[in-house]
Simulated assay, not measured.
Amino acid sequence: MPGIADIALAGAPIAGGALLGMAAGNFKGPDVQGLIVKDMDLLARIPEDQVQRRAELQRIIDMRVDDLIAAVHKNRQLRQLAASYEGNWRDIVVFVCAVLFTLVWWNVDHGRTNWLVMFIVLIVLSILSGVYAARGILRGVRTFLHSRHRAAHGQ
């Protein structure tokens, strides 16, 4: 039976991947609105006689406002795409692969220090991917039955 230190050391790559995923999810881009406010403040401080500098800074502010508007539209499109996702065959493939890899991992030497940690991660992955696959299958069946019902009633 491996010791706690062996299990912790074996779980380091999995924990590192989880931390990387959390860090990627919390990544924030630059505060474009704050930059626009600072640029507008700077524009107000530039003397009126420096026409070229004021025009160039105004052009930069306009570009940032355009970028902000484009980002809002892109974000809305991505949210609509994510909300409309109904699952597909890839969810089933991920589920089958997770289950198969769990079965393969079961046959690996149980004395390895990372065996238990990896096996638990594979079980969790199999369950989660199974939920997504089942959800996609149920939506597909529901859509099929709904379309048959409409066809039967001439709609």
Score class of each variant (00 low, 15 high):
Arg54Pro: 04
Trp106Gly: 05
Leu57Trp: 01
Trp106Ile: 06
Gly29Arg: 09
Thr102His: 08
Asp91Arg: 00
Arg142Gly: 05
Ala71Val: 09
Leu35Met: 14
Gln33Ser: 09
Val37Thr: 15
Ile137Met: 12
Ala8Leu: 09
Asp62Lys: 04
Arg150Val: 07
Arg79Leu: 14
Asn88Thr: 08
Asp109Glu: 11
Gly25Trp: 00
Ile123Glu: 02
Gly154Asn: 04
Asn114Ile: 03
Trp115Ala: 00
Ala134Val: 15
Pro13His: 00
Asp109Asn: 10
Glu48Trp: 00
Leu9Pro: 06
Trp105Ala: 01
Ile127Pro: 02
Ala133Ile: 08
Met1Gly: 14
Val72Ala: 12
Arg90Asn: 13
Asp66Pro: 01
Gly3Asn: 07
Lys28Ala: 13
Leu128Ile: 13
Met118Glu: 10
His73Asp: 15
Ala23Gly: 07
Ala98Trp: 00
Asp6Ile: 04
His146Arg: 08
Ser129Pro: 03
Gly25Asn: 06
Ile120Asn: 00
Arg142Ser: 08
Leu138Asn: 15
Ile137Leu: 14
Ala55Met: 05
Ile120Gly: 01
Arg135Lys: 11
Gly130Tyr: 00
Arg59Pro: 01
Trp106Met: 06
Asn88Ile: 03
Ala151Cys: 10
Val104Phe: 09
Asn75Gly: 15
Asp31Trp: 08
Leu138His: 13
Gln80Pro: 07
Ala18Gly: 14
Met118Tyr: 08
Lys74Gly: 10
